[in-house]
Design a binder for these strands. Structure first.
Length: 743
DNA sequence: ATGTACAAGATTTTT
DNA sequence: TCTTGTACAT
């Protein structure tokens, strides 16, 4: 099979696509443009030059994008191989492929479609040497990244209590999102007591040593490659005659630079986005990318899509009223001619368990009315919220799937098995090696590994290289030396086998010979048999792949929850995970201040954070076609402790005419006035909504306070006479109410 | 080298 | 509540 990404052989367009007598999809052909509205059509048919489509939620932007792709092919303006379509999730990439195929009546092969990361990986792999890697480099996930950083910090004697590896990981990721190599990070941006740039530099060097790249590298290296090697850039510029980008509002600086470089020659770039749905600024996304589009591409055509086809009038009205509270929007006025009578239902309950019970009862009720579970979803703010719903759903026997939860490839036994394959494919992969060096237990403990680590570090070589050297000295004790020697012999043999055997067979062999499978077989834990099953499934799944490398790339970049078709299941996911999806009925639990909007967002980025949370709420609401439910609880368990909370300020912002309120008995008559700083009151009668509001010494949750010893902070929760306060300097602390004063 | 017990800490959001 | 890290015994 030829590599569709090969630059030299440009896949030709399927002649049948342009043949008028071919009627593989005559229905689609006749209809594909006629069914578009005027603005959609404009976005599809403007072929030459840059196009920016400002599309509101549910206005058919994916449809525009795919129709445009099909249209380009149908007109014979480009061959599939000349197209570059970029999305954020593999799911939407697959959806795009499916739709284009449906429209043309035949599958289209050989075009570049995928996520930024997957496409970046292709390019980096092709030119790996130019960025100091070998073409079989490993792609590290964030777990590996943190583990590697831990080692670096450990060697540098950085106190993990004060500066945990996670903090460094975040800082480095942010820099990579801005395409900043260690050399380019301004000194003034150095973080974590000025140690971050140094750590970043060492981290990058370490990655090269073990021949690995992390997610951020896939794009950053691509950008630096293009900047350093104009010839390479030119070849791609020539290649991509048409570029299409979905969810443009969520592109970060690295992605933006990448696109801008690639589009320079043909300038046929079409970006589709909605500033009101920008929810990834914490990952470096810049809404500003939309604003500067016209500057970067002078003469750009701007098309607005404002007609919403998805949601009922009340849902759209509620969402629009909510998002109107944000300032600095580009401003779109979504409209619909639907006249559904269903309002957004808002309900207050006592606690999170009651919330789960009520939501799941409602789901069950809808199910008995012949609504499919596939058409319903529960969208939560934090992944921890899914647990209570899961418990309830299991009790009721409702089938569900958690999207974005623990995936197949994230399970322990699968990661272990994959680690074996990684070491076989790439002996320099230290992180994979460390994972399995003593798994199953081989008697290689701390002492031995410490010796190896020190040697590897001193000579700046990967662990396996160091071990090969150490084996010929007497630095290691006889027992571990023999064990390591055997292990290295095993790996050498497996590596030889990998040349001739298909990957599935190889894994089967490795699992048996390493004793890893036996380890689980003899394990008495209840989870053990399941793990053995999973390993069998992995071997089976490997049959699809011809090479080890292609499988490993699939695991790290393409693999996501392959939801089983034809099974009716309720979806449970975070609001972020719901981007680009739609459901008939959507449940939005946990609308409480502190949870949604999330306290961290408010603390860290203030008004900006609040606005992003509001956009997230907007995204949530606009996922619904017919029905939307919002719930909030007066108290909720966090870390196993009950905490009281107040309804989200977003609830106050929903226009009354579009919502319908209800409450659990007894929750209502709090009678508090609900005035806290920065809170704007609209006409909503708060007494109906506010659960009995706890105050201690006149202090309440969310309030800013001052403490003699710890300084300024914000009250997170009340706990009897104690307050749980998040101090700006000192962090989270519990203090007596009598020691703080309001500011 | 490995197993156990207890304490401390964690949770925004992700390709 | 659940997971991870540390200290100490085996």
């Amino acid at each position: 099979m030829s590599d569709p990404f090969e630059l030299t052989d440009r896949p030709a367009i399927d002649p049948s696509l342009n043949d008028p007598s071919y009627d593989g999809a005559s229905a689609h052909r006749a209809a594909y443009l006629e069914t578009l509205n005027e603005s959609q059509r404009e976005a599809v048919e403007t072929m030459d030059g840059p196009v920016l489509v400002l599309a509101g939620a549910g206005t058919g932007k994916t449809r525009v994008l795919t129709t445009r792709l099909g249209h380009i092919l149908r007109q014979g303006r480009a061959a599939p191989g000349d197209l570059l379509a970029v999305t954020f999730t593999n799911k939407s990439a697959r959806e795009m492929q499916r739709r284009v195929a449906a429209m043309l009546g035949t599958p289209v092969e050989g075009w570049w479609v995928g996520t930024f990361h997957a496409l970046g990986a292709r390019i980096v792999r092709r030119h790996a040497e130019a960025v100091g890697l070998k073409s079989n480099f490993t792609i590290l996930d964030s777990d590996d990244q943190v583990r590697l950083l831990k080692q670096i910090l450990n060697a540098r004697d950085i106190d993990p209590k004060r500066f945990p590896a996670r903090a460094f990981s975040t800082v480095i990721q942010r820099w990579k999102d801005r395409a900043l190599t260690p050399e380019k990070v301004p000194q003034t941006d150095d973080a974590l007591d000025g140690s971050a740039i140094g750590v970043y530099k060492e981290y990058q060097e370490h990655l090269k040593r073990i021949n690995a790249a992390d997610f951020g590298d896939l794009l950053m290296l691509c950008v630096t490659l293009f900047q350093a090697q104009p010839e390479i850039l030119k070849s791609y510029q020539r290649r991509f005659r048409y570029i299409l980008v979905d969810e443009y509002q969520d592109t970060n600086v690295a992605q933006y630079l990448w696109l801008r470089l690639l589009a320079q020659r043909h300038r046929n770039i079409c970006c589709v986005g909605d500033d009101d749905q920008s929810i990834y600024s914490w990952r470096g996304a810049e809404v500003a990318n939309i604003l500067r589009f016209e500057q970067d591409f002078p003469g750009a055509k701007i098309v607005r899509l404002e007609r919403n086809y998805r949601s009922g009038a009340h849902i759209l009205g509620a969402a629009s009223g909510l998002i109107a509270n944000n300032e600095g929007r580009l401003g779109k006025t979504l409209w619909t001619d639907r006249t559904d009578a269903e309002k957004v239902r808002v309900r207050g309950v006592w606690d999170s368990q009651e919330e789960a019970r009520w939501v799941c009862d409602e789901i069950e009720m809808r199910q008995t009315r012949a609504e499919s579970l596939n058409s319903m979803a529960i969208l939560v703010r934090t992944s921890a919220q899914t647990r209570e719903f899961e418990e309830r759903l299991i009790t009721l026997g409702i089938a569900y799937q958690v999207i974005g939860g623990l995936r197949f490839y994230e399970r322990q036994e699968i990661r272990d098995a994959v680690a074996y394959l990684r070491v076989i494919a790439q002996p320099r992969d230290d992180l994979a090696f460390q994972r399995i060096v003593n798994l199953p237990k081989r008697g290689l403990g701390q002492a031995t590994m410490q010796t190896v680590h020190q040697d590897a570090r001193a000579r700046a070589v990967p662990l396996t290289t160091s071990i090969m050297e150490l084996l010929s000295t007497d630095e290691l004790k006889p027992r571990p030396r023999k064990t390591l020697n055997d292990l290295m012999t095993d790996f050498a043999r497996w590596r030889r086998e990998s040349q001739t055997r298909p990957p599935a067979e190889l894994l089967d062999l490795v699992l048996a010979e390493s004793g890893y499978l036996d380890m689980w077989k003899s394990d008495k834990a209840i989870t053990a048999p399941g793990r053995v099953e999973n390993l069998k499934e992995l071997v089976l799944g490997l049959n699809e792949f011809e090479t080890l490398t292609s499988f490993l790339e699939h695991v790290s970049l393409v693999m996501d929850n392959e939801d089983m078709k034809n099974v009716d299941k309720l979806s449970l996911m975070t609001l972020h995970g719901a981007k680009g999806l739609e459901f008939d009925t959507v449940f939005l639990p946990g609308w409480e201040d502190g949870l949604f909007p999330h306290q961290r967002a408010l603390d860290e980025t203030g008004v900006q954070g609040l606005e992003e949370e509001r956009r997230l709420a907007y995204v949530g609401l606009t996922r619904a076609r017919h029905s939307a439910y919002i719930t909030f609880a007066a108290s909720r368990q966090i870390f196993g402790k009950w905490q009281s909370s107040l309804p989200s300020r977003f609830i106050d912002e929903l226009p009354l005419e579009h919502i319908e309120r209800s409450r659990e008995l007894g929750i209502a008559q709090g009678g508090a006035d609900g005035n806290w700083k920065g809170r704007q009151h609209r006409t909503l009668d708060d007494t109906v909504f506010a659960p009995a509001r706890n105050t201690v010494n006149g202090l309440e949750v969310g309030q800013r306070i001052f403490h003699q010893k710890f300084g300024y902070g914000q009250i997170r929760a009340l706990d009897g006479e104690k307050l749980d306060i998040n101090f700006e300097k000192a962090g989270a602390k519990k203090v007596m109410a009598s020691f703080v004063e309001p500011t």
